[in-house]
Protein backbone atom coordinates (compact mmCIF):
# COMPACT_ATOMS: atom_id res chain seq x y z
CA UNK A 1 0.00 0.00 0.00
CA UNK A 2 1.30 3.37 -0.95
CA UNK A 3 2.14 5.49 2.05
CA UNK A 4 0.53 8.73 0.93
CA UNK A 5 -2.64 7.05 -0.28
CA UNK A 6 -3.07 5.09 2.96
CA UNK A 7 -2.60 8.30 4.91
CA UNK A 8 -5.23 9.95 2.73
CA UNK A 9 -7.65 7.07 3.41
CA UNK A 10 -7.02 7.42 7.10
CA UNK A 11 -7.64 11.14 7.09
CA UNK A 12 -10.79 10.80 5.02
CA UNK A 13 -12.16 8.24 7.44
CA UNK A 14 -11.20 10.45 10.40
CA UNK A 15 -13.10 13.30 8.75
CA UNK A 16 -16.06 11.00 8.27
CA UNK A 17 -15.89 10.04 11.95
CA UNK A 18 -15.96 13.72 12.90
CA UNK A 19 -19.05 14.27 10.72
CA UNK A 20 -20.80 11.34 12.39
CA UNK A 21 -19.94 12.67 15.83
CA UNK A 22 -21.44 16.04 14.90
CA UNK A 23 -24.49 14.21 13.55
CA UNK A 24 -24.87 12.27 16.80
CA UNK A 25 -24.54 15.29 19.05
CA UNK A 26 -26.38 17.87 16.94
CA UNK A 27 -29.85 17.14 18.37
CA UNK A 28 -28.51 17.01 21.91
CA UNK A 29 -26.90 20.40 21.36
CA UNK A 30 -30.22 21.75 20.07
CA UNK A 31 -31.98 20.52 23.20
CA UNK A 32 -29.33 22.12 25.40
CA UNK A 33 -29.61 25.34 23.44
CA UNK A 34 -33.38 25.42 23.75
CA UNK A 35 -33.19 24.84 27.49
CA UNK A 36 -31.55 28.24 27.92
CA UNK A 37 -34.16 30.12 25.97
CA UNK A 38 -36.34 32.48 27.97
CA UNK A 39 -39.21 32.40 25.51
CA UNK A 40 -42.12 30.09 25.94
CA UNK A 41 -41.80 28.83 22.37
CA UNK A 42 -38.50 27.95 20.83
CA UNK A 43 -37.16 29.98 17.92
CA UNK A 44 -33.70 30.43 16.52
CA UNK A 45 -31.62 32.56 16.85
CA UNK A 46 -32.65 32.71 20.48
CA UNK A 47 -33.73 36.28 21.36
CA UNK A 48 -32.95 36.04 25.07
CA UNK A 49 -30.99 33.53 27.09
CA UNK A 50 -31.99 32.67 30.62
CA UNK A 51 -31.78 29.90 33.15
CA UNK A 52 -35.27 30.54 34.42
CA UNK A 53 -36.53 27.11 33.30
CA UNK A 54 -33.79 25.36 35.22
CA UNK A 55 -34.80 26.95 38.49
CA UNK A 56 -38.43 26.17 37.69
CA UNK A 57 -37.50 22.54 37.00
CA UNK A 58 -35.67 22.23 40.31
CA UNK A 59 -38.62 23.74 42.19
CA UNK A 60 -41.31 21.74 40.47
CA UNK A 61 -42.97 18.99 42.50
CA UNK A 62 -43.94 17.19 39.30
CA UNK A 63 -40.34 17.01 38.23
CA UNK A 64 -39.33 15.77 41.65
CA UNK A 65 -41.92 13.01 41.48
CA UNK A 66 -40.81 12.02 37.97
CA UNK A 67 -37.23 11.94 39.10
CA UNK A 68 -38.03 9.72 42.06
CA UNK A 69 -39.99 7.27 39.92
CA UNK A 70 -37.30 7.07 37.26
CA UNK A 71 -34.53 6.67 39.80
CA UNK A 72 -36.35 3.99 41.84
CA UNK A 73 -37.02 1.96 38.70
CA UNK A 74 -33.45 2.31 37.44
CA UNK A 75 -31.84 1.38 40.77
CA UNK A 76 -34.07 -1.63 41.33
CA UNK A 77 -33.54 -2.80 37.75
CA UNK A 78 -29.77 -2.45 38.18
CA UNK A 79 -29.69 -4.44 41.41
CA UNK A 80 -31.74 -7.33 40.07
CA UNK A 81 -30.25 -7.43 36.61
CA UNK A 82 -26.66 -7.52 37.89
CA UNK A 83 -27.36 -10.68 39.85
CA UNK A 84 -29.36 -12.44 37.15
CA UNK A 85 -27.02 -11.40 34.35
CA UNK A 86 -23.92 -12.45 36.31
CA UNK A 87 -25.13 -16.02 36.51
CA UNK A 88 -26.49 -15.75 33.00
CA UNK A 89 -23.10 -14.71 31.66
CA UNK A 90 -21.41 -17.64 33.39
CA UNK A 91 -23.86 -19.96 31.65
CA UNK A 92 -23.37 -18.01 28.41
CA UNK A 93 -19.60 -17.95 28.23
CA UNK A 94 -17.89 -19.72 31.11
CA UNK A 95 -19.39 -23.20 31.41
CA UNK A 96 -19.70 -25.85 28.78
CA UNK A 97 -23.05 -27.54 29.02
CA UNK A 98 -25.50 -29.19 26.72
CA UNK A 99 -27.97 -26.51 25.66
CA UNK A 100 -25.54 -23.60 25.85
CA UNK A 101 -25.86 -22.68 22.16
CA UNK A 102 -29.65 -22.66 22.45
CA UNK A 103 -29.45 -20.60 25.63
CA UNK A 104 -27.24 -18.05 23.87
CA UNK A 105 -29.84 -17.59 21.18
CA UNK A 106 -32.79 -17.42 23.57
CA UNK A 107 -30.98 -14.65 25.42
CA UNK A 108 -30.76 -12.60 22.22
CA UNK A 109 -34.46 -12.82 21.34
CA UNK A 110 -35.75 -10.06 23.69
CA UNK A 111 -33.00 -7.72 22.50
CA UNK A 112 -34.06 -8.17 18.90
CA UNK A 113 -37.71 -7.73 19.78
CA UNK A 114 -39.58 -4.47 19.08
CA UNK A 115 -39.86 -2.87 22.49
CA UNK A 116 -43.21 -1.22 21.93
CA UNK A 117 -44.76 -4.57 21.08
CA UNK A 118 -43.08 -6.17 24.07
CA UNK A 119 -44.50 -3.43 26.30
CA UNK A 120 -47.99 -3.99 24.96
CA UNK A 121 -47.68 -7.76 25.29
CA UNK A 122 -46.64 -7.32 28.92
CA UNK A 123 -49.60 -5.02 29.49
CA UNK A 124 -51.98 -7.66 28.13
CA UNK A 125 -50.34 -10.38 30.19
CA UNK A 126 -50.50 -8.32 33.38
CA UNK A 127 -54.13 -7.43 32.88
CA UNK A 128 -55.08 -11.02 32.08
CA UNK A 129 -53.60 -12.24 35.36
CA UNK A 130 -55.17 -9.32 37.20
CA UNK A 131 -52.15 -7.18 38.10
CA UNK A 132 -52.67 -3.43 37.94
CA UNK A 133 -49.56 -1.84 36.43
CA UNK A 134 -47.55 0.69 38.42
CA UNK A 135 -43.85 1.53 38.60
CA UNK A 136 -43.02 -1.92 39.97
CA UNK A 137 -44.40 -3.65 36.89
CA UNK A 138 -42.23 -1.30 34.87
CA UNK A 139 -39.21 -2.70 36.73
CA UNK A 140 -40.28 -6.16 35.62
CA UNK A 141 -40.75 -4.96 32.04
CA UNK A 142 -37.34 -3.29 31.95
CA UNK A 143 -35.72 -6.46 33.26
CA UNK A 144 -36.99 -8.52 30.31
CA UNK A 145 -35.03 -6.31 27.95
CA UNK A 146 -32.11 -5.24 30.14
CA UNK A 147 -31.07 -8.57 31.70
CA UNK A 148 -30.20 -10.06 28.28
CA UNK A 149 -28.16 -6.98 27.37
CA UNK A 150 -26.32 -7.02 30.71
CA UNK A 151 -25.71 -10.74 30.20
CA UNK A 152 -24.09 -10.05 26.84
CA UNK A 153 -21.96 -7.24 28.28
CA UNK A 154 -20.75 -9.42 31.15
CA UNK A 155 -20.19 -12.40 28.84
CA UNK A 156 -17.51 -10.52 26.96
CA UNK A 157 -15.52 -10.44 30.20
CA UNK A 158 -16.46 -13.99 31.11
CA UNK A 159 -15.10 -15.22 27.78
CA UNK A 160 -11.61 -14.08 28.66
CA UNK A 161 -11.77 -15.82 32.02
CA UNK A 162 -9.33 -18.70 32.27
CA UNK A 163 -10.98 -21.62 34.12
CA UNK A 164 -7.49 -22.76 35.19
CA UNK A 165 -7.48 -19.85 37.66
CA UNK A 166 -10.45 -21.30 39.53
CA UNK A 167 -8.90 -24.74 39.40
CA UNK A 168 -5.64 -23.36 40.77
CA UNK A 169 -7.43 -21.68 43.70
CA UNK A 170 -9.35 -24.87 44.37
CA UNK A 171 -6.12 -26.84 44.20
CA UNK A 172 -4.49 -24.46 46.67
CA UNK A 173 -7.11 -25.39 49.24
CA UNK A 174 -9.85 -22.77 48.76
CA UNK A 175 -13.45 -23.90 49.18
CA UNK A 176 -15.88 -23.37 46.29
CA UNK A 177 -17.29 -20.30 47.98
CA UNK A 178 -13.81 -18.88 48.69
CA UNK A 179 -12.78 -19.50 45.10
CA UNK A 180 -15.88 -17.71 43.93
CA UNK A 181 -15.29 -14.75 46.25
CA UNK A 182 -11.52 -14.47 45.93
CA UNK A 183 -10.98 -15.36 42.27
CA UNK A 184 -14.13 -15.41 40.15
CA UNK A 185 -15.77 -12.18 41.32
CA UNK A 186 -12.63 -9.99 41.38
CA UNK A 187 -11.59 -11.09 37.90
CA UNK A 188 -15.06 -10.62 36.43
CA UNK A 189 -15.54 -7.35 38.31
CA UNK A 190 -14.99 -4.98 35.34
CA UNK A 191 -17.63 -6.89 33.39
CA UNK A 192 -20.04 -6.83 36.32
CA UNK A 193 -19.52 -3.12 36.71
CA UNK A 194 -20.08 -2.40 33.02
CA UNK A 195 -23.20 -4.54 33.16
CA UNK A 196 -24.49 -2.51 36.09
CA UNK A 197 -23.74 0.74 34.28
CA UNK A 198 -25.56 -0.42 31.18
CA UNK A 199 -28.53 -1.60 33.25
CA UNK A 200 -28.90 1.69 35.06
CA UNK A 201 -28.54 3.89 32.01
CA UNK A 202 -30.76 1.82 29.74
CA UNK A 203 -33.48 1.75 32.36
CA UNK A 204 -33.09 5.48 33.03
CA UNK A 205 -33.57 6.36 29.39
CA UNK A 206 -36.13 3.73 28.44
CA UNK A 207 -39.35 4.96 26.94
CA UNK A 208 -41.26 2.30 24.94
CA UNK A 209 -41.44 -0.26 27.75
CA UNK A 210 -42.28 2.33 30.42
CA UNK A 211 -45.03 3.81 28.24
CA UNK A 212 -47.22 0.73 28.56
CA UNK A 213 -46.21 -0.70 31.89
CA UNK A 214 -46.02 2.11 34.44
CA UNK A 215 -49.77 2.51 34.80
CA UNK A 216 -50.56 5.71 36.64
CA UNK A 217 -46.91 6.38 37.53
CA UNK A 218 -44.77 8.30 35.08
CA UNK A 219 -41.05 8.31 34.30
CA UNK A 220 -39.18 11.31 32.91
CA UNK A 221 -39.04 10.01 29.29
CA UNK A 222 -42.77 9.29 29.40
CA UNK A 223 -43.60 12.73 30.69
CA UNK A 224 -41.38 14.35 28.06
CA UNK A 225 -43.13 12.39 25.34
CA UNK A 226 -46.56 13.33 26.63
CA UNK A 227 -45.59 17.00 26.67
CA UNK A 228 -43.98 16.85 23.24
CA UNK A 229 -47.08 15.36 21.67
CA UNK A 230 -49.49 17.71 23.41
CA UNK A 231 -49.15 20.58 25.84
CA UNK A 232 -45.61 21.71 25.12
CA UNK A 233 -43.79 23.46 27.94
CA UNK A 234 -40.24 24.87 27.91
CA UNK A 235 -39.54 22.43 30.72
CA UNK A 236 -39.24 19.77 27.99
CA UNK A 237 -35.82 20.83 26.69
CA UNK A 238 -34.72 21.74 30.21
CA UNK A 239 -35.57 18.36 31.65
CA UNK A 240 -34.23 16.68 28.52
CA UNK A 241 -30.91 18.45 28.93
CA UNK A 242 -30.81 17.59 32.62
CA UNK A 243 -31.40 13.86 32.12
CA UNK A 244 -28.86 13.80 29.31
CA UNK A 245 -26.32 15.50 31.54
CA UNK A 246 -27.12 13.06 34.34
CA UNK A 247 -26.64 10.03 32.07
CA UNK A 248 -23.38 11.41 30.70
CA UNK A 249 -22.06 12.06 34.22
CA UNK A 250 -22.93 8.56 35.38
CA UNK A 251 -21.28 7.07 32.31
CA UNK A 252 -18.11 9.15 32.52
CA UNK A 253 -17.88 8.54 36.28
CA UNK A 254 -18.27 4.82 35.72
CA UNK A 255 -15.70 4.85 32.94
CA UNK A 256 -13.29 6.73 35.20
CA UNK A 257 -13.79 4.11 37.92
CA UNK A 258 -13.02 1.30 35.47
CA UNK A 259 -9.90 3.02 34.17
CA UNK A 260 -8.79 3.89 37.69
CA UNK A 261 -9.29 0.41 39.12
CA UNK A 262 -7.56 -1.11 36.10
CA UNK A 263 -4.59 1.18 36.72
CA UNK A 264 -4.53 0.19 40.38
CA UNK A 265 -4.77 -3.48 39.51
CA UNK A 266 -1.80 -3.16 37.17
CA UNK A 267 0.45 -1.86 39.93
Amino acid sequence: MNRSSSKLTRNLIALWAACILVFMYLPLACVALASFSKNRYFRFPIPKYDTVWYSKAFDSLTVQGLFETSLSIALLVTAISVVLAFFGSLAFARFDWRGRKVFQKIILLPIFFPQAVLGLALLLWLSSIGIIPDWRTAVFAHLIWIVPIATLVMSIQAYSFDPALEEAAFDLGATRWQTFREVTIPILWPGIFSGALFSFLLSWGNFPLSLFTTGADQTIPEWLYAKMVSGYTPLVPTLGALTTLGAALVLLGGYAIIVFSRGKGAK
Binding site: L26, P27, G205, P221, G240, T244
Partner: peptide
Protein backbone atom coordinates in the same frame (compact mmCIF):
# COMPACT_ATOMS: atom_id res chain seq x y z
CA UNK B 1 -20.82 7.19 20.31
CA UNK B 2 -22.22 5.15 23.19
CA UNK B 3 -23.24 8.13 25.33
CA UNK B 4 -26.22 9.15 23.16
CA UNK B 5 -27.55 5.58 23.42
CA UNK B 6 -28.31 6.20 27.05
CA UNK B 7 -30.35 9.30 26.41
CA UNK B 8 -33.99 8.52 25.91
CA UNK B 9 -34.63 8.36 22.19
CA UNK B 10 -37.55 10.73 22.33
CA UNK B 11 -35.31 13.47 23.76
CA UNK B 12 -32.86 12.99 20.91
CA UNK B 13 -35.62 12.97 18.34
CA UNK B 14 -37.04 16.08 19.93
CA UNK B 15 -33.62 17.66 19.35
CA UNK B 16 -34.07 16.99 15.64
CA UNK B 17 -37.47 18.62 15.81
CA UNK B 18 -35.83 21.73 17.29
Amino acid sequence: LVIPLFVSENIRLFGWVL
